[in-house]
């Protein structure tokens, strides 16, 4: 009786998911298919899902453009910025989390609570002065303008510390008896054990930096230096009458995070439960 009831619920669920799933994926697939159409086909054929003639020229034209919309350049800039941010965030936050989790010092909890409390200030309030600081340092239009602000985040420290707190302190003590220093405990004992959470932090930092829109569109005015996310805004202005090319630009921009997701889906999904296990 119960199994039968459960079975029917599962079938209803499946039908619901298929319908909504189709709705969900259609915009993306339609955009993808349109990126292979010619502009003429787009404008004359009306509704047709698949291209009549599969063209790759929209992509090649965009990637070869080096003047007003250097998409390939933007792509490389984004790789440098997101990669740099990820490395800095990993180094800086894991060190800090180690101190908060494992080292004893005066004011530890006060400092940690202070850092956490700053999370309630929305980033809109510091964007104007941050711009001034970046131009003063001469870092506007350089990757540093995005890499350093990325490493200010407190939530990553929070996550890593939480993860570290679950590692038995006995591990440290065993190493300490063998004469290990703090640094050795961090490098040899802790670091290998926190790899899962570091991987999660890395994925989120990379995609977060890749997708950041407001800040880079303010701090990058040089068309050759900007990353691809604000670049797409320029592309939209430039190709307002050439939708297939515009679609190709958007598809190029989402490829890296899409691939990351395919490779590391488990970690993306796990991270959400990590952050909620903490807050919930």
């Amino acid at each position: 009786m119960k199994n039968k009831k459960q079975g029917s619920a599962q079938w209803l669920s499946l039908i619901f998911l298929i319908v909504l799933g189709v709705v969900w994926i259609t915009p993306l697939l339609y955009g993808l298919m349109s990126s292979f159409k010619s502009n003429l086909e787009m404008q004359s054929v009306g509704f047709k899902f698949l291209p009549i003639n599969w063209l790759f020229t929209n992509y090649t034209r965009l990637l070869q453009n080096t003047s007003n919309t250097p998409v390939f350049r933007w792509f490389l800039n984004s790789i440098v910025i997101s990669g740099g941010s990820t490395i800095l965030v990993l180094v800086v936050t894991s060190l800090s989390a180690f101190a908060f989790s494992r080292l004893r010092f005066r004011g530890r909890n006060v400092l940690f609570m202070f850092l956490l409390s700053t999370m309630m200030f929305p980033p809109v309030m510091n964007i104007i002065p941050l711009y001034k600081i970046m131009t003063t340092l001469g870092w506007a239009n350089t990757p540093w303008a995005m890499i350093f602000p990325a490493a200010t985040g407190v939530f990553n420290i929070f996550l890593i510390r939480q993860f570290m707190d679950n590692i038995p302190i006995a591990y440290d003590e065993a190493a300490r008896i063998d004469g290990a220093s703090d640094w050795q405990i961090f490098r040899i004992v802790i670091l290998p054990l926190i790899k899962p959470v570091l991987f999660v932090v890395a994925l989120f930092t990379f995609t977060g930096s890749w997708n950041d829109f407001l800040w880079p569109s303010i701090v990058f005015s040089d068309i050759n230096k900007m990353p691809i996310t604000p670049g797409l805004k320029l592309l939209q202005g430039m190709y307002v009458a050439d939708i297939p090319t515009l679609m190709a630009g958007a598809i190029i921009a989402i490829i890296p995070t899409f691939i990351l997701y395919l490779v590391a889906q488990k970690y993306f999904l796990q991270s959400m439960s990590l952050s909620v296990g903490v807050k919930g």
Partner: peptide
């Protein structure tokens, strides 16, 4: 309710949140 392909659908619905707002708007503007 754990229907078949639950993992697949989970991945599908999560997918758009990996994209930037500018790419998302371009796709939807079409």
């Amino acid at each position: 309710t754990k229907p078949i392909f639950a993992k697949f659908f989970q991945g599908l619905f999560y997918l758009p949140s990996l994209f930037s707002i500018s790419a998302v708007v371009i796709v939807w503007s079409l």
